[in-house]
C-alpha cells in the first residue's frame, strides 16, 4: 500500500517514514518490524535497535543529561517496545513515532520524578519573576535549527522566535516550565502562558 500512495496524500505526516522506506529498501518499515516483534521475532527488535538506537540515545541523553542513566532508559525502552509491540496501532501513527514516544516518556518520567523537589516555592518564583520582568528586550534569535524537519514547519514559522525556543527547550531539552523560564530569562507565568498559547496557535494553524 505504501508504494502506491496517490500524490494527494504525500503531505500527510504519517506517510513520511513509509515513503522513505519505499525509496530506501534497506531502511525497513518500523511498523512491519513492530508487528514482527509482536510475533516474537527478536531479530526485528535488533533491527529497530540498529536503525534507531543512536538517535534514541541522543534524544534521551539530551533530556536526562547523563549517559549512564540514558543507556538504562534505552534498555527499559527496548524491553517495553518488545513487550508492548502487540499494542502498537499503525492507524494512529508510524512505528517510528511510537518508539520515540516510548523512550521520550520514560526519560521525561525520570527527570520529572527526580526533580520534583527542586521546583522553587511560590515566594521565590514571584521574586524571580519581578526581577526578570524588568528586562523587556526581545530575544529574536532561534536557539534551534528547526526548519526543514517536519510538516509543522509552516505553523511554527508563524510563532515568534522566543516562543519557538520555549517549545523546543521543552520538547528537545526536556526542560520544565521553571527551567525554561531560567533559560529564557523570562517570568515563569509568561513562559507558561506562551507555551499554552503557542500550542493553541499551532492547533489553529493545523485545523
Amino acid at each position: 500500500m505504501r508504494c502506491l500512495s496517490p500524490s494527494g496524500v504525500r503531505f500527510k505526516e504519517v506517510r513520511v517514514t513509509d515513503d522513505v522506506a519505499a525509496f530506501n529498501p534497506s531502511a525497513a518499515d518500523h511498523g512491519a518490524l513492530l508487528e514482527a516483534c509482536a510475533r516474537g521475532e527478536r531479530q526485528a527488535l535488533q533491527q529497530l535497535y540498529a536503525q534507531e538506537g543512536s538517535r534514541l540515545l541522543g534524544v534521551v541523553v539530551r533530556i536526562v543529561g547523563d549517559r549512564g542513566i540514558a543507556e538504562d532508559i534505552i534498555h527499559d525502552a527496548f524491553v517495553n517496545i518488545w513487550n508492548k509491540a502487540h499494542t502498537f496501532d499503525a492507524t494512529r501513527g508510524s512505528g517510528k513515532t511510537w518508539i520515540f514516544s516510548v523512550a521520550r516518556h520514560l526519560a521525561l518520567n525520570h527527570v520529572r520524578t527526580r526533580h520534583r523537589e527542586v521546583t522553587v516555592d511560590d515566594e521565590t518564583a514571584d521574586r524571580l519573576d519581578a526581577e526578570r520582568a524588568h528586562e523587556v528586550e526581545t530575544d529574536m534569535q532561534d536557539h534551534f535549527d528547526w526548519l526543514g524537519h517536519g510538516d509543522l514547519d509552516r505553523c511554527l514559522a508563524q510563532l515568534a522566535p522566543e516562543r519557538r525556543n520555549c517549545l523546543f527547550h521543552a520538547y528537545v531539552d526536556g526542560f520544565s516550565h521553571p527551567e525554561i523560564a531560567t533559560r529564557m530569562d523570562r517570568p515563569l507565568g509568561t513562559v507558561k502562558a506562551w507555551i499554552k498559547r503557542s500550542l493553541a496557535a499551532l492547533r489553529e494553524c493545523l485545523s
Binding site: 538506537g53 543512536s54 540515545l57 541522543g58 534505552i74 520515540f100 524537519h149 523546543f168
Partner: peptide, 19 residues
C-alpha cells in the same frame, strides 16, 4: 498521538550518540 506525530520529526535536531 496527534502531537507525537507532529513533533517527532523534530527529534532529528538532536545529534545521535552511538550506544
Amino acid at each position: 498521538w496527534a502531537w507525537e506525530r507532529r513533533l517527532q520529526p523534530y527529534t532529528a535536531m538532536v545529534e545521535p550518540i552511538a550506544p
